[in-house]
Each structure stands twice: as C-alpha cells, then as structure tokens.
Amino acid sequence: MKNILLLLFLANFQIGFCQTSATAVYKVEPITQHLLVNEDDDDLRSRAKINMLRSLELTADLEIIVKFNQDEYISYIDEGLPNDAINASDLRVAMAMLGPGVYYEKNNIKYHQIKTMGNNFIIKDDAPQKWTITKELKKIGNYTCYKAILDCAKCGFETIAWFSPEISATYGPVGNGDLPGLIIELNTRHLTIRMSKISFAKNPLNLKKPEKGKEITQAEFETMTNRVRSQARND
C-alpha cells in the first residue's frame, strides 16, 4: 500500500514537473509605509509622495498574467473591468510601477511592446537577467522557493525573486525571469507580486508575438529616451 501511495505521489510530482504550458495569475501587494509624508519632507517631496501613494494603492486592484510554453512566454497587466471612479492618469502611473505594455519572449529573445511618447515600440533584447541565487528558502503555497537577488548595477533598489524549480519554466511576471524555475514571488521597494493561481495546460498555449510598433533595440531605446529628456529639459 505504501509503495502504491509513493508511486502515485511521484507520478503526480512528475506530471507537475513536466508541465511546460501554463497560465499563472499574480496579485500585487503595495508597500506604502515609506510614502507617508513626514515633517522633514519639503513641498516637492510631499507632493511627489502624495501622487505616488495614490497610484501605488491602485496596484492592489491589478493582476499580472503570465502564460508560457516551453520556449515561449507572454506577460501583461490585466486592468480588470473599467472603473470610472479611478483617475486614468493615476492608473497609468500605477501600471508604470508594475511594468507597462506586453512582454513576450521566444527562444531567449525578449520583446517589450510599449506605447511611449505617443508611439508604439517593440524593444528587442537578448540579454538575460543576471541573478545571485542564495541558499535561503521559503514555502509559498505548495511550492518551495529559493531566494535570488537581481544583479543590476543600474538599479537603485534591490529586487528579490523567489523562484521554484518545481515548475520548470524560466519565466516570471512582467519580463522578469532567467532563473531555473518559475518566479513565484517578486519583491521590490514598493511592491510584492505573488502568484495566486496557476493552471497547467495539456497542450501548448497559443501565444502571439506583439506586432504593433517600431522594433528597436534596448540600447537604441535608451539613447532615444535620454536624448528626448535632455532636449526637453533644455527647451
């Protein structure tokens, strides 16, 4: 009897491990404490904090969708139903905090479709994210997760990912990934993004690469935005 149970358990685990097509939904928890206005804040900082807090609180109503096959992935923010009570500008800032647009990846080449400066762009990037995997473990739902810290010289704040090798996918929410397992939780300074459900598919999902927009490289995009900012500042 024990052997049968063990076999069933292993078979179940194996099925879960071999699944390479799935849809995962991530919920967002905003971290708001550091955006409370205090006595030391000048007028500019107070205004900025009030604006940010208003937008950050909206992120709690957003969901991030991740769909993947073995070598293909897509992720985007699900705004839910339209709500007239929400200020559209605040919502756009909230989405910018999470990661706006559509993230698509195929055969390790990443595409990020985004509308900026009134135009659509598809930013192409083949550089993988680099992480330092630690020995720290924690259980999130049914999954045992390892802690990884993003190696990012340009980043002002630390980004931590909790990934589970139990789901053999190198993906995560809004373009994050390149770890030996699906990212189950992502911690940034302002947000905790955590997987709330996942449904595995028997057959590969039909994922479409975003087509709308001018394709440019990450380096070209950065050059362009830096130029726009410096020109506008001098005007």
Binding site: A48, N51, M52, A96, M97, T116
Partner: peptide, 23 residues
C-alpha cells in the same frame, strides 16, 4: 522626485517618469 523615489535616481525609468509627468 517621483522617479527617484520609485527606482532610486533620476533617469532610472523613462516609462515611469513619463507617466508621472503626464499625470
């Protein structure tokens, strides 16, 4: 100011900066 609070320094996220400005 918002961009600096969001990602650490001015220039770290054009998308965020653009939306903060437009708001």
């Amino acid at each position: 100011e918002e961009e600096e609070m969001y990602c650490g320094y001015v220039g770290c996220s054009f998308f965020f900066w653009e939306q903060a400005y437009c708001a």
